[in-house]
Design a protein around this nucleic acid. Structure first.
Length: 485
RNA sequence: CGGGACGUGGCGCAGUCCGGUAGCGCGCCUGAAUGGGGUUCAGGAGGUCGCGGGUUCGAAUCCCGCCGUCCCGACCA
């Protein structure tokens, strides 16, 4: 493992810093397959914690998991016009199997609507079968030119919810419900507070009536689309003939939704909290929440310290995910760097001095006041104090991230020169009035690289919206601009 | 697909201009001392120099062809 001593600082080169944090944290790495990454055990453990939390919420809201095929007959993808137009350019296609050319090429799923709906159509006969609430955990493939670990790779892991409803209203309610599930997960578990809102007509999911999204602001003031929830209307029901019989005996197309988050969230997590020492993880998503580092000077001291460290680990094991680093081949300082690089929220140092005083030294990976990172905890209080510490850190990370988002949000902008200045220098979320035309966004994007991320939901909308768009025309509604990943 | 660069132990690189039989740092292995912020010393293992062809007594180095990767531009969870 070639690890430079110090990471490239964020301020110097954010992209280089990101790559180094991911690799030093042993989250992921490159593989012999162009653009494809390996998610290493530590990174995968984070994904498993994410899955567990999200899956629980999906179940609580009435969804069931299922698994659909990886391969989609090419003709299926073509049934929904906008869908195929949106995804065809980035699909991988299997043309041969068993040494022979296939009669019909198989598309490796870029998303599963085109295989799920023909199948679920058979499950739905009557209004009594609705709503049908299905989720799938799977991998998908979207061919990419330019790749980044977690943020954009040809293959990634995600979940995709697919639901069918008897009415437009039910589908809309579902779309918004799952958007709020995502928002809460990002806030409460990831400490990554997103904006929520609606995508423009031309930026929505291929085949959707409306696309809602969570957009989070990274430390470099670029936006990351972190989750989407789509109201698909009856578009897929028509394309795949998904009908149900109503109470009065007529046949109607179902109303459907789909929604997903991916391993991209891990990239967002990294770019939200990590620092120039490496990864910072919110305690709820940290595979190891506390690491115990024993410190000893000689063989005699060693036995005593290790015994105390093991006892400590035993006391903590049922309340936190704890790891005792008793390697004898690495000295304490090196262990500090290693576990900091992996984002472990709390380090517990235990050495001769601590044994004498009947305490352990606890060091938080992150604190709003850097001077308050290190605190001694008396032996009897470690269990309670440590859990308090982890809770506090979770909250502090969220508060810090919210403050950063708000400090970097610019509202009420209606002057294009000012807009350009903000995008070119400060960055962040820029709220403006908007005329509503695609041409306007295209020309702004051309000139500034900024795009409309969404039309903000009520929770984020400004009290006063400028009367005119940055192009000078009358504003129809408010939008949020940013440079985006 | 257009523009630029690169391919040499696990990782990062030097050597290529000017041919002479491969080197450095990190990591890895062994041993000893060390141990409260990346410890030191000693010893050691590890390379078809991207692939194929050519020139030459001799090629990592020169020539031709191919493959691959990375960076910059049009698309993107």
């Amino acid at each position: 493992m070639a690890e430079q001593r110090a990471l490239t600082p964020r301020a110097e080169d954010f992209s280089a810093w990101y790559n180094e944090v991911v690799q030093r944290g042993e989250l992921a790495g490159y593989t012999p397959v162009r653009g494809c990454m390996v998610i290493r055990p530590h990174g995968y453990a984070i994904w498993e914690l994410m899955q567990k939390a999200l899956d629980a919420r999906f179940k609580e809201t009435g969804h069931q998991n299922a698994y659909f095929p990886l391969f989609i007959p090419q003709s299926f993808l073509h049934r929904e016009a906008e869908h195929v137009e949106g995804f065809a350019p980035e699909t991988a296609v299997v043309t041969h199997g068993g040494g022979k050319e296939l009669e019909e090429p198989l598309v490796v799923r870029p998303t599963s609507e085109a295989i799920i709906w023909p199948i679920m159509a058979d499950w739905i006969q009557s209004y009594r079968d609705l709503p049908l609430l299905i989720n799938q955990w799977a991998n998908v493939v979207r061919w990419e030119m330019r790749t980044r670990l977690f943020l954009r790779t040809p293959e990634f892991l995600w979940q995709e919810g697919h639901t069918a409803h008897a009415s437009q209203e039910d589908a809309q309610r579902e779309t918004l419900l799952m958007l709020s599930v995502y928002r809460r997960f990002m806030e409460e578990w990831m400490a990554m507070p997103p904006l929520t809102g609606v995508k423009t007509e031309w930026d929505k999911f291929a085949g959707a009536d409306r696309t809602y999204a969570c957009e989070a602001l990274m430390q470099d003031n670029w936006a990351l689309q972190a989750g989407t929830s789509h109201n698909l209307g009856q578009n897929f029901a028509r394309a795949f003939d998904v009908k149900y019989q109503t109470e009065d005996g007529s046949h109607e197309y179902v109303w459907s939704t789909s929604w997903g988050v991916s391993t991209r969230l891990i990239g967002g997590l990294v770019m939200s909290h990590s620092d120039d020492l490496g990864l910072v993880l919110p305690p709820k998503l940290a595979p190891i929440q506390a690491v115990i580092v024993p410190i000893y000077k000689s063989d005699e001291g060693r036995g005593q310290v290790l015994e105390a460290a093991e006892k400590l680990a035993g006391q903590l094991r049922d309340v936190v995910r704890v790891r005792l680093d008793d390697r004898d081949t690495v000295n304490p300082g090196a262990k500090y760097y290693e576990w900091e690089g992996k984002g472990v929220p709390v380090r517990l140092e235990i050495g001769p001095k601590d044994l004498e005083k009947g305490q352990v030294m606890a060091v938080k990976r992150f604190a709003p006041d850097p001077k308050a990172r290190k605190v001694p905890i008396p032996d009897g209080e470690v269990r309670s104090r440590l859990t308090e510490m982890l809770d506090a850190m979770q909250n502090e990370l969220l508060a810090t991230a919210i403050k950063r988002r708000e400090d970097n949000s610019h509202r009420g902008i209606d002057d294009y020169e000012e807009f350009k200045e903000i995008i070119a220098t400060a960055g962040g979320f820029v709220y403006t009035g908007y005329c509503g035309t695609e041409e306007c966004e295209a020309s702004v994007k051309d000139e500034t690289k900024a795009t409309i991320r969404l039309m903000p939901d009520e929770d984020f909308r400004s009290d006063e919206i400028p009367a005119k768009c940055i192009c000078g025309k009358k504003a129809e509604y408010e939008v949020v601009w940013a440079r985006a990943y």
